[in-house]
Design a binder for these strands. Sequence first.
DNA 1: ATATGTGCAAATAATTTGCACATTA
DNA 2: TAATGTGCAAATTATTTGCACATAT
Lengths: 130, 130
Amino acid sequence: MEATKLKKSKQRDAILSFLKTRKDHPTADTIYENVRKDIPNISLGTVYRNLALLTDIGEIKKLSFDGTSDRYDAETSPHCHFRCRNCGKVIDVEVDGVLEDILSHAKVPGQIDEQITVFIGTCEQCMDKY
Amino acid sequence: MEATKLKKSKQRDAILSFLKTRKDHPTADTIYENVRKDIPNISLGTVYRNLALLTDIGEIKKLSFDGTSDRYDAETSPHCHFRCRNCGKVIDVEVDGVLEDILSHAKVPGQIDEQITVFIGTCEQCMDKY
DNA sequence: ATATGTGCAAATAATTTGCACATTA
DNA sequence: TAATGTGCAAATTATTTGCACATAT
């Protein structure tokens, strides 16, 4: 929360650039396993610390879902997510205009900084299986 | 996930009726502490088990937020939530019509069962403090 | 009687943190 | 060289689970 001078770190850079290559909202652990290929002795704690820091400064977004691990997203423009109850997959959903709409209709006792919309259901692949 | 015959239990009844008295989306632990007043030897495990069961059968809803404990809501009609980043409070938001709207605009590769919208920001009380 | 529910305590899973050392500005 | 970042391991927090006993049908 406090303004503190940022120093660059190769760990943070590696975490952010890895995250930018992915559109599937990986967990901290997946990020760890991947960044490790470049920086073998990076620790999971460092991954968590940097993800928290990047989230604080708005470079990335943290997505929390029911029960499971938090996921991270380098795409910060307004969009929604769809999560498959069956396979756990999380994908982006474009809903152009509707977010602004919902914001203008919502009577909220406070100031809104951010809005999260998640659709939950069954994805096409999983529906095909049954 | 499997259909299994439900037996009634006073613990489950107490949990559900307590939850119905609250509009502030309490955590499992808060529910535990309160139900305990009536059923002193109820265990936290039982509270979690029943909350999971009630969620499965759709009697209540489970809300997951950033980092903190899951919260539970006995109000199952469509509505959104507002969460104060500062004090953690979660309150209901009425957005009549907009949810249907967002659903009809969303192009999702699958079948949607449920939709969750959370506004995140600073509540009035917290804004006054600064 | 038999399936389902419970209490308890231990186990798990995700995330955070303290501390001594490393790195950046 | 002073502030910030890291690795490691231990600690914390939330939640789940195994098991023997209790309760509902």
